[in-house]
Nucleic acid binder design. Structure first.
Length: 218
DNA sequence: ATCCCGAGGG
DNA sequence: CCCTCTGGAT
């Protein structure tokens, strides 16, 4: 079985998945850049649904970077507890908020280089904030879904997220970087799931080197 | 037992 | 490169 070249496959991923997930962007609920960066920090190794259950309580209790800095850490921990990594996530939220106050006039910065200076923020979180809060494409958010699907689709052989991101950036037009990430994530949640991917209903099966399907000879 | 929109430290 | 941090869902 032969497959189209990587660049063609990447283009097909965009055109075929777009109609399936039209209107779906991030699964995280937020109303401001600050809410999005907090929600994204909480989303590490945790489902969006779980994050969306705690953020209404969190966002009602703390409305600004100053509120997070002044908050009792144990109270923040108790609110975010069910998301896991609750001590690290609380430290990241409060440390990030402190950095916003000290260096960015309490505003979430709009560039990758500035976002990466915030404690608890690396490329994945920065890419989510840039694309969904500011509409900026400085990279491609590589989470566990993007990592898994990129590998299965044969778009990269790399394992480290930063290297996967570089490979994808070469294969996808820059104005589609944010969209590519969202589409792979939704497809990863609904079809190309981790344990037993539903290749029989996948619109990418014929161009996926990893698809387990009955292939008829032409 | 495995997976979920990771990041920091050694 | 590796390890650790964590709870909830399946």
């Amino acid at each position: 079985m032969r497959f189209p070249p990587k660049k063609k496959r990447a283009a097909e991923v965009l055109t075929r998945l777009q109609p399936l997930y039209a209107g779906l962007t991030t699964g995280l609920d937020f109303k401001s850049p600050l809410e999005l960066i907090v929600a994204t920090i909480l989303s590490a190794q945790c489902t969006d649904e779980r994050v969306n259950k705690v953020t209404p309580v969190l966002f009602a209790r703390y409305r600004s970077a100053e509120d997070y800095v002044e908050a009792d850490p144990e109270e923040v921990e108790s609110i975010v507890h069910s998301c896991g990594f609750f001590r690290n996530k609380t430290k990241s939220i409060q440390g990030m908020s402190g950095a916003l106050l000290e260096r960015f006039e309490a505003e979430v910065p709009h560039t990758m280089s500035e976002l990466l200076t915030l404690p608890g923020v690396a490329r994945k979180t920065a890419n989510v904030v840039l694309s969904h809060a500011f509409g900026v494409n400085e990279g491609i958010a590589v989470d566990t879904h993007v990592q898994r699907l990129s590998g299965r689709l044969g778009l990269t052989k790399e394992k480290v997220p930063a290297k996967i991101e570089r490979d994808l950036m070469k294969l996808v037009p820059r104005d589609s970087w944010g969209r590519m990430s969202d589409l792979l994530i939704w497809h990863g949640r609904r079809v190309c799931v981790a344990r037993s991917p539903r290749c029989n209903v996948c619109v990418l099966a014929d161009i996926c080197p990893s698809a387990v399907v009955i292939r008829y000879r032409s």
